[in-house]
Amino acid sequence: MKKTVNVNIGGAPFIVDEDAYGMLKKYLNEIEIRLDGVDDKETMQDIEIRIADIFNGAISAQSQVVDAALVKRAIAIIGSAREFGEPRRSLPDQEPGPGPDRQRRLYRSRREKIIGGVCGGIAEYSEIDLTLVRVLMALFIIFGVGLMVYIVMWIIIPLEPAKQENYNEYRR
């Protein structure tokens, strides 16, 4: 059993399975970052209309859901995103890189944790080696009030939000 998504492509409604939706979204995003900024909306609309035409031609009364095979077929007909040139900007789904626009927050790590993820979160936030943070925390615990500080940080620092599942990359 697969999840399906109702989408509007090129002005036409379609039911698309979740894997196919991920592929199609990634493909359209990759094309969008390669456009030069002139008439981007019109170009993207034309591409969506072409995709809708391909889907309409392939959908029958038996199969009304767009699947990954049909998306791959549409991509093969239209052409790879690389054919639209080199990327001119970053993908909209990507996290912002380091710089003044990036908003950083301190979280307890979901991946790098032994007890509560506090050391892992501090290491990720400060971009230093996790082992160094753990050694320093162990020294604070042995020689002072480190245990109390760790417990308070465990309570106060929120757990890192779960990230959405990454869709499988489309294959040619």
Rank of each mutant, 00 (worst) to 15 (best):
K72A: 15
I114V: 09
D93E: 15
E42G: 14
A61M: 06
V16Q: 03
T131R: 11
I157N: 05
D40E: 15
V5T: 08
P100V: 10
E124N: 10
S90I: 15
E165F: 06
S109P: 01
L147R: 14
I47M: 04
N168A: 10
Q62R: 11
L130N: 03
P161M: 07
M148R: 12
S109F: 04
P161D: 04
S90V: 14
G117W: 01
T43F: 06
I114A: 05
S109V: 02
I114Y: 04
K163L: 07
I77C: 03
L147D: 07
Y150T: 00
I15D: 09
K163M: 05
L132M: 09
E95V: 09
S126E: 04
M1V: 12
D19P: 02
N168P: 07
I15S: 15
E169V: 10
P96A: 08
R108M: 00
I54T: 08
P98Y: 08
I47Q: 03
R50P: 02
Q62K: 12
I51V: 15
E32T: 12
N56R: 13
V145W: 14
M44V: 04
K26T: 13
K72F: 02
G57Q: 13
I9Y: 01
F55C: 02
N29Y: 06
E30M: 15
V133N: 10
F140E: 12
E160Q: 15
Y170P: 10
D53K: 14
V66I: 14
A12F: 08
V5Q: 08
E127N: 04
R104M: 14
E30G: 13
Q164E: 10
V118N: 02
Y125F: 14
Q103D: 11
D46V: 07
L147N: 08
Q45P: 03
P96K: 10
E124D: 14
K2T: 14
V135G: 00
Y125R: 12
L136Y: 03
I47F: 02
V152N: 03
Y125C: 02
V66D: 02
G120W: 06
A12C: 09
D129H: 00
S90H: 13
P87G: 05
L136N: 06
G85Y: 04
R50F: 05
E48A: 09
A68I: 07
L35K: 11
K113C: 04
A52P: 05
G22A: 14
V145M: 14
R102A: 11
V135E: 07
L70D: 01
A138W: 03
I31G: 00
A162C: 07
R111S: 13
F55A: 02
G97V: 12
I59V: 13
V66L: 07
K2L: 13
L70C: 02
E112I: 01
I115A: 05
Y125G: 01
T131K: 09
K2S: 15
R34L: 10
D93P: 01
I151H: 08
R108F: 00
P158V: 05
M23H: 15
L139Q: 06
I51C: 06
R111T: 14
V118I: 11
I78G: 02
A76N: 12
P96W: 04
S63Q: 11
G79I: 03
D36T: 11
F84W: 13
G97A: 12
Q45I: 03
S90D: 14
L159R: 14
K41S: 12
N56I: 04
E165C: 02
K163W: 01
D19R: 15
R108L: 00
